[in-house]
Write a protein that binds this DNA or RNA. Structure first.
Lengths: 183, 183
DNA sequence: GCGCCCATGTAACTAGTTACATGATTCA
DNA sequence: TGAATCATGTAACTAGTTACATGGGCGC
């Protein structure tokens, strides 16, 4: 984050929260210790800023060594994420409860995908309108849009999977009713 | 896993590895301690099996209380997964390195998606052929297929996102070259 | 005065991974 | 004979989250 501009730990957290929270999150419990560590390694420098009428803030800046280190890390291959999707775990053991419960879960999931996609659509509009101003460097906007599009693809896919799954489960429930009628 | 049939810790691990590893993984470091814990809580029972010519195995079975507990857990809402996708993190800070490097990363990602999808296709064929035999309970097969389809939707979406992103980044690289020519 | 935002930090805790130790059997 | 698979378990470690403590400024 400091490669964009110097800022405080508090601002770093805010940046995470309102730009990439959908695929990466950090909390104060990590940010502050890591900043101290980076300072000790000479990758960032701290300057305490005393503005009148405000409590003092620690503004961190990336050093040349820090930038070199960032570049090195960027070139390293990215670790593939290990997924842990509790909804799927529950579906996998779905045989132990009535199908109706699983249907409800998938419906919930579809609803929440819809909500997330609405939020993303608003963020997309916002990013695009900001990108039109000639005073902002639109390379960062571009990368922002790329990561946003990942989220959109992902939740669209999940939403479609929900539709398909609901159909499958409905058939399943139909067969069950048939069995009951036959008895 | 014990809700399917009684088995040993070793077999539980194998079940994870060759059925739901793509969205949930467990290792011995968790399995054995959790089994002891569940036993202490009366949710599973242990029977040590001595088969001649084989080392003894601890076979765990789920108790009625355990089944009740499982059902309770299944009805609880599933926690939405917190994504941590390093590739996106690197793309987000992509401004710090030449675009070509990011293009390479996305190409790698697309390749690995393709490989995973091939594996999934084979697993799908296998599940479907097993499901045709009348001696297997195909309700579990159905739930297995549902979770597999999630993986397929997901990696297809990522693969499409890769294509789209490669186009965006190519345009980006094009503009850069233009700038160089203009200089 | 109350709640919210700014701001920094630590301690305790939970979760999850990896490495290690041990040892039998089976198959090439 | 050596590698692979079966089999169980612990210890150490890394990662990540939550809760707490502290306190100033600002608007209603």
């Amino acid at each position: 984050m400091l490669s964009f501009e110097p800022m405080s730990g508090y601002e770093i957290k805010k940046r995470f929260d309102n730009s990439i929270a959908h695929f990466w999150q950090e909390n104060y419990g990590r940010i502050y210790p890591v900043l101290s560590q980076l300072e000790a390694e000479g990758l960032v420098t701290k300057k305490t800023e005393h503005t009148e009428g405000m409590r003092s803030r620690n503004i961190y800046s990336i050093t040349d060594e820090g930038t070199a280190n960032l570049r090195e890390w960027l070139l390293l291959p990215a670790e593939p994420p290990t997924l842990r999707i509790e909804l799927l775990l529950k579906l996998f053991f779905g045989h132990a409860v009535p199908v109706a419960n699983m249907i409800a879960k998938v419906e919930d999931e579809k609803r929440s995908c819809g909500q997330i996609l609405q939020t993303f659509a608003r963020v997309e509009e916002h990013l695009k309108s900001v990108g039109k101003h000639p005073d902002v460097c639109d390379e960062n906007i571009r990368f922002g849009l790329i990561t946003l599009r990942y989220g959109q693809s992902y939740y669209q896919a999940v939403s479609q999977w929900c539709d398909e799954t609901l159909q499958t489960l409905a058939e399943c429930a139909g067969e069950k009713n048939l069995e009951i009628e036959e008895e």
